[in-house]
């Protein structure tokens, strides 16, 4: 492959991804691509499946159908190039660890889990701490941080991973205006370096301002693309105008009556499944 072709490979391709909890479908055949080097916002109302989408992309739960490609490869091949930031509330911040210890986790790998971190690893941790302005708090215990500082720690851990694709779940929740700006600055910097950043975001007001690529989600994909094309009255109304009754009814039917979420033996893999009927 030529260099030019490599740049054309989307950073993230989600192909017909469907997911459910206890047979209750929460994502319906999500299908989109994100090019490299954009700052993307995943936007949708509460419970619209944003977190579920990220968890599926990171292989944290088993999809019912579809697949995900990252830089054209399976996740396992490019894990080192991807960084995932879970929702801040998903961890217990009373955990006895220092800021530095948490950020160091960004350098953990299967290979070095039983050894000490190398010097380069420690340097990368310091640089990441510096970037989010937490270096002076490095030895503070995480139980003593404010909400905004906790977000900065998670951001630093992600930066320490030194990835090419960043997936972050609500990094702006619970931060003040100054921190929000600081975080945004770091993210823009990443984008300027040609990295791809995907952010789950709540606030419609700021979404247009912050991102240049937007994915509108409400259990189904409403729209995905450059923000100018996506941010239309009609799309927004559709995304925030409630669930489709037919989808909800069908979901309940599947959950209640032990139907398979996807037909057995009809698991779509790459290249198959576009047949006629």
């Amino acid at each position: 492959m030529k260099n030019k072709d490599i740049n054309k490979v989307p950073s993230l391709e989600v192909h017909n991804l469907a997911a459910s909890y206890n047979r209750m479908p929460v994502l319906w055949d999500i299908d989109f691509q994100i090019p490299q080097g954009v700052l993307t916002g995943i936007v949708g109302p509460n419970g619209s499946g944003k977190t579920t989408l990220l968890r599926n992309i990171m292989g944290l739960m088993k999809a019912d159908s579809g697949y995900v490609k990252i830089f054209g490869e399976d996740l396992n091949k490019v894990r080192e190039r991807v960084s995932y930031v879970p929702q801040r509330e998903s961890v217990d911040w009373t955990f006895p660890a220092s800021v530095r210890e948490v950020v160091e986790m960004g350098r953990y790998r299967n290979a070095n889990l039983m050894r000490r971190l190398s010097k380069t690893d420690k340097e990368k941790v310091n640089i990441a701490l510096e970037k989010v302005g937490m270096l002076e708090y490095a030895n503070r215990q995480i139980s003593q941080l404010s909400g905004g500082q906790q977000q900065r720690v998670f951001l630093a851990r992600s930066l320490a991973q030194d990835a090419d694709l960043y997936l972050m779940d609500e990094p702006f929740v619970g931060v003040d205006a100054a921190t929000e700006e600081a975080i945004l600055e770091v993210l823009s910097e990443l984008r300027n370096e040609g990295k791809t950043v995907v952010i789950v975001h709540h606030d419609l007001q700021t979404a247009y301002q912050y991102f240049n690529w937007i994915i509108l989600l409400n259990t189904r994909l409403v729209a995905a693309g450059p923000k100018e094309e996506v941010f239309l009255q009609e799309n927004l109304r559709e995304a925030y105008g409630g669930r489709l009754t037919i989808l909800s009814k069908l979901s309940n039917l599947i959950a209640k009556s032990e139907f398979p979420v996807r037909e057995k033996g009809f698991k779509e893999t790459e290249g198959s499944g576009d047949g006629q009927s």
């Binding site: 017909n16 319906w28 055949d29 994909l221 069908l250």
Partner: peptide
């Protein structure tokens, strides 16, 4: 309604036809 491309819809329909 879900704006799926026509070459992506078959697998889903292959299941739902039995459930609807």
């Amino acid at each position: 309604r879900l704006r799926l491309k026509s070459d992506h819809i078959h697998p889903n329909a292959e299941t739902m036809e039995h459930i609807i």
